[in-house]
Simulated scan of single mutants.
Amino acid sequence: MDKYVVILAAGKGAGMNSRDPEHSKVSYPILGKPIINYVIDAVKLLDPKQIVTVVGFGGELTKSLVEKDSDVVWQKRLLGTGHAVLQAKPLLEGKPGQTLIIYGDTPLVETETLRSIFHIHQKNRYDMTVVSAVLENTKGYGRIIREDKSNRILSIREESDCTFSEYEINEVNTGICIVDNELLFKYIERLSVDNSRHLFYLSELVQILIGDNYHVGVFVAEEMKEVYSINNRIQLADATKIMRRRINHRLMLSGVSIDDVDSTNISPDVEIGQDTIIRPNTIILGKSKIGEACAIGPNVVMNNVEIGNEAEVCFSKLENVKVGPAEKIGPFVEKNG
């Protein structure tokens, strides 16, 4: 069955407190790569028939980051997640298949997790699958409301609308879901603003579908960090730390030595050959390619460079340059090609 993806990336991201009014939240970089491009890369591996990104605040910048891989629609007025998804209706309405809806500020989500959600959705023949997580600190999240006896989902309550007892629930809505595409756009306009913030919440779709006897299930995420949304610079730094270790561990398992994983920052698109050693305080960004048996660092910054086998670079800053095999660069060299 065909897969579709809708990425929600219209929000203001006021928590970033930027002086630039057009700096969209999803365009902030993690290890040199914009947040939303991590999401794009993860969903592309699902081989979807179509990706649609909903942009709004700072939309021109966001559009420039995604338009190579995604159709783009605009949410001119920020009236909630349901209203955001509605903007994709002209592109997706009536197409048979399953639609993944995901936030553009979740850079840590991995393709294998998304595949698992699709697997559960298809195996159980759900019409909608909501992704939840169990948290100690639930502030800011909608709560999953379940029936006491059967434990099946009944609805999702936004935090601002919770009763005291509902507020104490620690299972939350991550905002990620899969919905039968034809049902999604059949029912999307039935969402109401009957809530304390007068917004169209996509989460209301759960109760609407259940009311019409459709099958709604829940996938409980094992790793909350994968569905972690970035809303301020503290969370951006936390996500960067997780991504740094993830990338460095992958490289080390492939045969690269890294002296200090905490002071080594490598972009996810960098390629490094076996038996290369990365010394402390090294930053390697862009689509850099480093050969085998090289020595890089300490105190090196590189962006979009190509390094031949057995080369050495230390105490240097290089951008858009090539370093030949066995060539030695540094100390105290700056080159910009």
Rank of each mutant, 00 (worst) to 15 (best):
I210S: 04
I210V: 03
I210A: 04
G211S: 07
G211F: 02
D212G: 00
D212Y: 13
D212S: 05
N213M: 01
N213C: 04
Y214V: 01
Y214C: 03
Y214R: 08
H215V: 06
H215K: 15
V216S: 09
V216M: 02
G217I: 03
G217P: 04
V218Y: 03
V218I: 15
F219M: 03
F219S: 04
F219D: 02
F219K: 03
V220I: 10
V220D: 09
V220Q: 11
V220E: 14
V220T: 14
A221M: 11
A221F: 00
A221H: 01
E222T: 08
E222D: 14
E222Y: 01
E223G: 00
E223R: 13
E223S: 09
E223I: 08
M224E: 12
M224S: 12
M224A: 12
M224I: 05
K225A: 06
K225T: 04
E226K: 09
E226Y: 06
E226D: 03
E226S: 02
E226H: 11
V227A: 02
V227K: 00
V227N: 08
Y228A: 01
Y228L: 12
Y228R: 10
Y228P: 00
S229C: 01
S229M: 05
I230L: 12
I230R: 05
N231S: 01
N231E: 07
N232E: 04
N232D: 15
R233S: 10
R233F: 05
I234F: 11
I234A: 07
I234Q: 12
I234H: 11
I234L: 09
Q235L: 12
Q235M: 13
Q235N: 07
L236M: 10
L236A: 07
L236P: 04
L236G: 05
A237C: 02
D238H: 05
D238G: 01
D238L: 11
D238Y: 09
A239K: 05
A239G: 10
T240H: 04
T240D: 02
T240W: 04
T240Q: 14
K241Q: 10
I242R: 07
I242D: 11
M243R: 14
M243L: 14
M243K: 15
M243G: 00
R244P: 07
R244M: 13
R245C: 05
R246N: 14
R246L: 10
R246T: 14
I247H: 06
I247M: 09
I247W: 07
N248C: 14
N248A: 13
N248H: 12
N248S: 13
H249V: 15
H249I: 14
H249Q: 14
H249S: 14
H249N: 15
H249T: 15
R250P: 01
R250T: 10
L251R: 13
L251Y: 09
L251V: 12
M252T: 12
M252H: 09
M252D: 08
M252S: 13
L253G: 13
L253H: 13
L253W: 04
L253K: 15
S254R: 13
S254N: 14
